[in-house]
Amino acid sequence: MDLVKQSDVSTSQDEETEFAIDLRHGLGLIARHRMACGDVAKGFGLWRLALTLSWLDIRLRYRGSILGPFWLTLSTALMIGSLGFLYAFLFHTPIRDYLPFLSLSLILWTFIATIISEGCTVFVSAEGMIRSMRIPFSVYLGQLLARNILILGHNVVVIVVVFLAFQVPVSFAAFAAIPAFLIWMVDGIATALLLGAICARFRDIPPIIGSIMQIAFYVSAVMFKPEFLGKRGWFLLYDPFFTLLQIVRQPLLGSIPGYATYLSAIGFSIALCALTWYTFLRVRHRIAFWI
């Protein structure tokens, strides 16, 4: 064989011992962990790809429109403005009290709800890419999260304007929202992974999730302040949507939630992550066949 060999002979040592592809059937538990961790680690390594993908998603959605992504801001502002006055009247609350609460609540809820509904299709909608090359599944999760954070960034403008207009004081308590938001990011990835995998296999899940979210929206004190329920609000502590919302929302409104709220939110997050990891271990290698 007289072959002209042009490729670098000097590829780095560590790459030479590594397999580009090493896949086999019937992995044990440890090997499955290793594959799943590898997926996450490689996904982190490709963060630029995830970021570019998410930015292009937004660009695509608003290609050719004059306001572009600021349509999001505008429509959120309109929604909050109109709902705010109506519900402030219905709940007999002063508008200066209610509107800051509602703007924060609604925008944060939209963030959660969008991650959940898009999570259902995170793998199915990436079918073309998944079938054509081996990319860590975590890249698609990063794409989804980054996209939604970018959208949240556009909506935050509304919150800032409302807070300034009503001169809502922001205390040091607001810093407590930062670790809480980090919990959200972890939960967001976990939710998208769990739902993305399950929904790829069982196509009846997305409508079920849709109706659960609808109920959760009305139950979880998004539109009304939890105080309105008085003593009947005890169940809220068992509602993960509420407690998770509360650990970000309440600090921004100036007070730290009680420890029971944190306990519930963190406990739910741990359970969610454990369930997601277990699912990922079991189905990671099957996802490409399901989509």
Binding site: F19, D22, H25
Partner: peptide, 16 residues
């Protein structure tokens, strides 16, 4: 290419 993981057997590739 690693798109489909084996349902049986093994695939190993060394090199970029």
């Amino acid at each position: 290419a690693g798109v489909y993981e084996p349902v049986g057997g093994r695939v190993q590739i060394r090199g970029s």
